[in-house]
């Protein structure tokens, strides 16, 4: 083989593989970007931040008119029971509000939303670092990337009736990973309640953008397992006192109030101090449906 032939074959082979790859990406389209996303049921199995960012470009605006925005404590809440709206759960493991804002901004650029539930919890405003490449993610990743191939593989397995465990529901609700209960009841470090000014500004801007889009805002203060909450009650109360006047005014549902104490005291509702299990998530969803209605 001459060098000239070798070069031609290398370039042709790369071009061919890229074309096949693009064709597969467009045909399977696990992020709902290249084909009409209306009525499709797309799940997230990997790299949730990037996946929810890409799904929020077309899939979320086309199929949902309400958003649940929060960290992992609301990741497994299934918002399907809330009447009058079709809600997508944008909550992501370990997310801060700057990350959530980047995801929500995508949805707002194309969609109209009637309702947005925003979780008000210290980890949302501790820092404004974007993780897992969320700051750099682009639509081009839906044409060829590691997370795309994993989503494509999951889609093919699902079509073969071999669904992936821990995949999200089409409305973004994601079962918690791991098994068993583990309660580390302790005082949280002071840095847990740090309030980052950039994150707070992002929270305010995100809520204002949602309101400008026509969405009614409901803040939700999540329910921690009661023994954990009691140990840190003063810090949580101080955090809420600090945040409430800064953020745009809206209704608040306080799951840390006395009304919800029985739920919080029952360890069967939890997998750890912060996260509710499947049953607990179902109860919270029902409660939210009644109260928001």
């Amino acid at each position: 083989m001459t060098s000239r032939t070798w070069i031609s074959r290398v370039l042709a082979a790369i071009a061919l593989v890229l074309c096949v790859n693009f064709a597969a990406a467009i045909a399977l389209d696990p992020y709902g970007i290249f084909r009409d996303p209306r009525g499709r049921k797309l799940q997230v199995v990997f790299a949730a931040r990037k996946a929810k960012f890409l799904l929020s470009k077309r899939y979320v605006p086309a199929n949902f008119d309400a958003l649940l925005i929060g960290p992992s404590s609301s990741e497994n809440w299934d918002p399907a029971s809330i009447p009058g709206v079709t809600m997508y759960n944008e909550s992501t493991l370990g997310a801060n509000v700057t990350e959530e804002k980047r995801i929500v901004d995508q949805a707002l650029s194309r969609g109209h939303f009637k309702l947005a539930i925003c979780i008000l919890y210290p980890t949302m405003t501790t820092n404004h670092t974007m993780n897992d490449g969320l700051d750099a993610v682009t639509t081009a990743e839906a044409l060829g990337s590691i997370h795309l191939y994993i989503e494509e593989a999951a889609q093919i397995l699902a079509a073969l009736h071999r669904p992936i465990a821990n995949a999200s529901a089409p409305n973004g609700a994601t079962p918690l990973k791991g098994s068993g209960q583990r309660f580390d009841i302790a005082h949280f470090t002071a840095s847990y309640f740090d309030v980052d000014p950039v994150a707070v500004a992002d929270y305010t801007h995100m809520v204002e953008s949602l309101q400008a889009n026509g969405a009614r805002i409901v803040y939700v203060i999540p329910a921690l397992y009661e023994p954990c909450r009691l140990l840190n009650a003063a810090e949580f109360a101080a955090y809420q006192r600090k945040m409430q006047p800064i953020l745009p005014q809206a209704a608040t549902i306080d799951l840390s109030s006395s009304e919800f104490e029985t739920f919080r005291a029952n360890p069967d509702n939890y997998v750890d101090c912060f996260h509710v299990g499947a049953d607990g998530a179902a109860k919270i969803s029902t409660y939210l449906a009644q109260h928001i209605n």
């Binding site: 890229l18 682009t138 990337s145 997370h147």
Partner: peptide
């Protein structure tokens, strides 16, 4: 091709 995929995965 592998490098391009990694590169495009930010």
């Amino acid at each position: 091709l592998v490098a391009l995929v990694f590169l495009n995965s930010s």
